[in-house]
Write a protein that binds this DNA or RNA. Structure first.
Lengths: 258, 258
DNA sequence: CGACCAGTTTGATATATATCAAGATTCATG
DNA sequence: CATGAATCTTGATATATATCAAACTGGTCG
């Protein structure tokens, strides 16, 4: 709440990411003070321990829709905690094909893909006006050697990402188009609920094409599935405004399809 | 090489996994001595540091084809390093659908999915006679607080798993059947090569149905794709024996399909 | 050795989703 | 407020893969 804006020219983003130069701003933010404490990194930390985290995450950057937080191939420096807004991550194949691998929202940590090679393995793109807290990974590792509960939390975050990805594999590998969309909507619903937002009424931040890429479908198929759910009274859609009218039936729909 | 067989009845596997009672044996194994040092955990460790690892990974267990290393829902205790043989991991949906999420081979670490909830999120099943080194996670975490290079290595292993999964998503979400199989074969080839085995001639440890589950295809489609590659002179298949006759063309095939 | 059984191959047909195309709606901008 | 561009919806058709079915293969075991 009491974030202090500041400028630190010595920490300008890399020159190859020109958009960032325009849209980035920097803000001091204190983990010990942040209203995302439950969602984000500092769990089970004493106030004193949380202040140690403050030391390493004082930079906040903002991005506009379409801005890249990082690109595939960028040198790895930091993880990012999403403080406001949302992002998509996508992997690109040489031949130009792209696959959206996830949508990330407030309180989620992004950038874990880069640890293994020291270079990012995917792009992260803002879906709306967004802010992230930068967490220099070296400092995070050093601190997690001191604070076992932070260490465990970091491990849990990475493990959760693995489990999530495996569930997407299940979805892509064995579900039909409408089931995939139902699972997607239910998952969004849960994530909004976990953030104190409505689990039934929300605004999609991504296009039909982006949803389709994530779900392994063409945008027309996504659109048809939305329309079909609507005509069955399961949901109400107006472009990107969603109302999950009959969430139980939507849940029951998944798996019913043999 | 100088592993000493021993029995420790007090450490019998859990009673709900009867098969293990039959097929498990326990062997002392020393990381500092292991010929998998490069592939597995102990990287960049001094001899003294590697001996610390010995302390936590002295149990080796064996499994026969079809045995479960762990099941979805099992309480999380340990990670496992595959010392010999191979495993598959699979997630099961309530409705009975299953999806193979990966095939793991010698030197790879398995069980990372369980950290986030303290319970395993998938099954791990031996594909052949196999041995694993058990790595109690609490001890591994404690040691990695002392040894920064072990800590970093653990992070890299988890990150690598995330990247791998994202590449499977790309495969499942945007590639055609034959491309998926080509990617699968190329990936196996690379992994065999990294272990000093032939990158072109190998024996598949999994059935057509398991390959199909992993690739989001039916077994008949997998079989047809094998036959088609063979009739094009890219590979030679005899049931589970594979010879990648023209690996460059196989690589070029991926992506050619728009 | 022979019979069986699980796994594999191959063929014919069905079907879900992609593709192509045209309008309709929403959004950004001057 | 009007214009154009992007996004979304819907329809007609094409196509890749699933499904169903039958024959073949290889290994196991009495």
């Amino acid at each position: 709440m009491t974030n202090i804006r500041r400028d630190s020219p010595s920490l300008l983003p890399k020159a190859d990411n020109v958009q960032q130069l325009v849209s980035n701003s920097r803000l001091k933010i204190a983990c010990s003070n942040c209203n995302l404490r439950e969602l984000c990194l500092p769990v089970n930390l004493s106030m004193g321990e949380a202040r140690l985290l403050d030391e390493i995450s004082q930079l906040k950057r903002s991005y506009g829709r379409g801005d890249y937080l990082y690109r595939s191939g960028d040198k790895f420096q930091s993880l990012y905690a999403i403080h406001r807004g949302s992002f998509k991550t996508q992997v690109l194949h040489e031949d130009g094909r792209e696959q959206v691998t996830g949508f990330q929202m407030i309180g989620e940590i992004i950038g874990l893909d880069a640890i293994c090679t020291d270079h990012h393995a995917c792009d992260a793109v803002a879906l709306e006006n967004s802010e992230v807290c930068e967490l220099p990974f070296n400092k995070l590792e050093a601190l997690s050697r001191e604070l076992p509960s932070l260490q465990r939390h970091l491990h849990k975050i990475m493990s959760r990402e693995i489990v999530r990805d495996q569930n997407v594999m299940l979805l892509l590998g064995s579900m039909r188009a409408e089931e995939r969309l139902a699972v997607f909507l239910i998952s969004l619903s849960q994530r909004f609920a976990a953030r104190g937002l409505s689990p039934t009424q929300f605004h999609l931040r991504m296009s039909r094409q982006e949803i389709g890429s994530y779900l392994g479908l063409k945008l027309e198929t996504v659109s048809r599935a939305f329309s079909h759910f609507q005509s069955n009274g399961l949901i109400s859609v107006h472009t990107r405004s969603i109302d999950l009218i009959d969430l139980p039936s939507l849940r029951a729909f998944v798996g019913k399809q043999q």
